[in-house]
Design a protein around this nucleic acid. Structure first.
Lengths: 336, 336
DNA sequence: TTGAAAGCGCTAACAA
DNA sequence: TTGTTAGCGCTTTCAA
């Protein structure tokens, strides 16, 4: 910037004014400055500006996701990016892989770069460590999972209600024995979905049978095995509710291998690419990652802009997408 | 940092030494400093450090992708992140949506934050605008597509050879009329894949028939329509090569709707989630986004670490994954 | 082993 | 309308 000033024959401050689009610079000088900046390929140093500025804004936010490569996380990412882009804000992103320690490391990496705010899909359960950061003015919005030991804005999926919706759909079609396959029980959303399953059964006056429940089936392979196992039992379920993406895929694989995909009903939580092209097409309770990301980013920027209202909990609704697998009627038990 | 110094009763410089792990500080003082830093929740300001440091490193890199939410891009993202994480480097990411203007905007957003390097999956064809940036010492690695009017390191997929492999696979099974459905011709990789198709036919002594080629079918809908159209012609192909992800899905949909998915052979370029669960499972020429991202990031850090060797072109091989759809034999034309 | 002083590139506050 | 000075939080340089 000094070089630009020298070349344009003006003071540093004048260059600063032109670069920042401030008023009160004559057209003549402004033009000279612009020409000099162009010739020297001048680019404002955002770090230096931030150091001196009174508002202390870096125009950068941090985004902590389960895994930048997973479809749900990356859809949230894209939605956050779109909101940030409109304001010229850059997005630092990182993956946590359900590792609380990684969460703390990434938060430190981002806050040391003085991000204006953080959108977190948290891996840990205790966020008290963020209190000083929050007090220092960093905006914090949690997505998909609520913070622990910390008050902050949250944007959540309707996990319990969505599951209830899906399970009720199966009950309505006459299924009496509905199996539940879920993600790791230590993950809050997994527990909420399990609660939804229980609630739907209770509401219909059904008993919950322990041998129809397989929680902690976190991978495709585990879900495949659990499904195979559950269906081989004497009192096998006539329908399955799979509470997560990979779990659904594992169940589809197992049903396919057993040749029972047109016999056992299936409703999955969370939509996935090509679910409509499978045979039968998979009925799902779809989340809306796009809305989650957008709502979270908008809340974040509201805080960054100075909103000091009470913390909010925003719930993004799920939607039942009927495609076929969830509408298979119960198989009549053959008397043996 | 000044506060920490005051509280520990030492000079600024001593705190700096401790925080940076420099040697030559007595254990006593170092401990005092650490205690004070802890009490005050001290966190080093990365921006201020960068402003003063001689090497000018920010410990941040920029990553420009086609779209952070698309499976190929996000897999590259994850691989880059993993390499960066090992060095404590943060990653700024953004989507270009095939828009050259957006590419320039994002580059500016990132370079004004003084990233140490940039990994680009470019949208534009002219990268001369990056010359000053490159001269200023920003490391530049292109992925998936080569730069235009600029010399830089590149990591590419074996597009032409991969396509040749897939088309030869169909020729080997006796197909004489093989349709080609491709992405926008202005995208370099799309053209390379088309060239591979031509080359495979030529190598087998076949003629290229214009009515078997539909380039510019960039969306699922366009590919669906093109497939439907092509298969309704008198001299319809007995096999299809689809040169991109969404194009493959469009073709699958069309074949399914026509009820000909077990009749017309299909080989797609680029693998996709659940391709193995479709009926028939889809044979593909798979790229390796993981390797692409890893190799690119490693090259980037080599440059950041001062490697001044000649620019490199690294080609990541593709792999034919045989699943069923590509092994359907040619349908005998019924004499009418 | 420790510290004082200068200055990175920029903007705030004030002066001309 | 334009410019001068100080200082953001840190590291470098040099001195003690």
């Amino acid at each position: 910037m000094r070089d630009v000033a020298a070349r344009a024959g003006v003071s540093l401050k004048t260059v600063s004014r032109v670069v920042n689009g401030e008023t009160g610079v004559s057209d003549l000088l402004a033009e000279k400055v612009r020409a000099a900046a162009e010739e020297l390929n001048f680019q404002l140093n955002a770090g230096a500006r931030n150091l001196r500025r009174s508002d202390g804004r870096t125009g950068t936010i941090g985004l902590l996701l389960e895994n930048v490569a997973n479809p749900f996380s990356s859809a949230v990412h894209r939605a956050v990016e779109d909101v940030a882009r409109r304001r010229g804000v850059a997005v630092l992103a990182g993956s946590l892989d359900e590792t609380p320690q990684r969460e703390r490391e990434l938060v430190a990496t981002f806050t040391s770069r003085r991000v204006d705010g953080l959108v977190l899909m948290p891996a840990g359960a205790d966020h008290a460590y963020l209190v000083p950061e929050q007090r220092a003015g960093t905006a914090l919005v949690f997505v998909d999972r609520a913070p622990g030991r910390l008050e902050a804005d949250v944007v959540l999926t309707n996990n319990r209600e969505g599951t209830t919706l899906g399970v009720a759909h199966l009950l309505d079609r006459g299924h009496e024995r509905i199996g539940f396959l879920g993600d790791l029980a230590r993950i809050a959303t997994a527990t909420e979905r399990y609660d939804g399953y229980i609630e739907a059964l209770r509401a219909a006056g059904r008993l919950v049978s322990a041998d129809l429940v397989a929680r902690d089936s976190a991978t495709v392979e585990a879900a495949d095995a659990a499904t195979t196992d559950m269906l081989s039992r004497p009192d096998a379920p006539t329908a399955l509710f799979t509470a997560q993406n990979l779990v659904t895929i594992g169940a589809v694989k197992a049903l396919r291998r057993l040749g029972r995909q047109h016999e056992v009903a299936l409703v999955g939580f969370d939509d996935f690419l090509l679910g409509d092209l499978l045979d039968p097409p998979v009925t799902v309770v779809a989340q809306d990652p796009d809305a989650i990301g957008r709502v979270a980013a908008e809340q974040l920027f509201r805080r960054i802009d100075g909103d000091t209202g009470p913390f909010t909990v925003q719930v993004v609704p799920t939607r039942l997408i009927v495609r076929g697998s969830g509408e298979i009627p119960p198989l009549r038990q053959v008397a043996s």
